[in-house]
């Protein structure tokens, strides 16, 4: 597989094309902005009791990552969310293997050189909010 195809694995391209709960939700309990000032990527995360939505503008990687994150976190308590987020961010940061079959696409730092910020964008934003 070429390096390009490793970044843009089928699952990532598919997820970005058909993102999970990609719609604006006015009146949600909480709204968080995940913003990367370097590239202008900007997603709003809409958190409600039972479901999570997002909307906005970003690259394939950040969009897919946000979408996967919501799939993984929906229905979890804040405490559980934070644990999953921390574990994921740690795996990215320390280049550990990822057990979660869905998130495994982001394994191997080398592949995503220059694009790690895109992966962690929504995760970091939500983590900050949950830790408040």
């Amino acid at each position: 597989m070429s390096n390009l195809d490793q970044i843009y694995k089928k699952q990532i391209l598919e997820e970005a094309k058909h993102p999970f709960h990609f719609e604006k939700r006015e009146g949600s309990l909480e709204q968080i902005r995940a913003y990367n000032p370097i590239c202008g990527d900007r997603f709003d995360l809409y958190l409600s009791e039972n479901d999570l939505h997002f909307h906005g503008f970003g690259c394939t990687i950040s969009k897919a990552s946000t979408s996967f994150m919501l799939r993984r976190l929906e229905g979890k308590t804040d405490q559980e969310k934070l644990e999953i987020i921390n574990e994921f961010l740690k795996s990215i940061d320390q280049n550990l293997s990822i057990n979660d079959p869905m998130l495994k696409v982001f394994e191997n730092k080398e592949t995503f050189r220059g694009r790690l910020d895109c992966i962690i964008l929504p995760w970091k934003a939500l983590k900050e909010k949950l830790e408040e």
Partner: peptide, 21 residues
């Protein structure tokens, strides 16, 4: 196609460009 995706694709063809504001 997002500028960063474009820049990554071009990089795979050995073309160095910048994406962003």
């Amino acid at each position: 196609i997002h500028p960063h995706d474009a820049a990554s694709f071009l990089n795979s063809k050995n073309i160095a460009v910048r994406a962003g504001h």
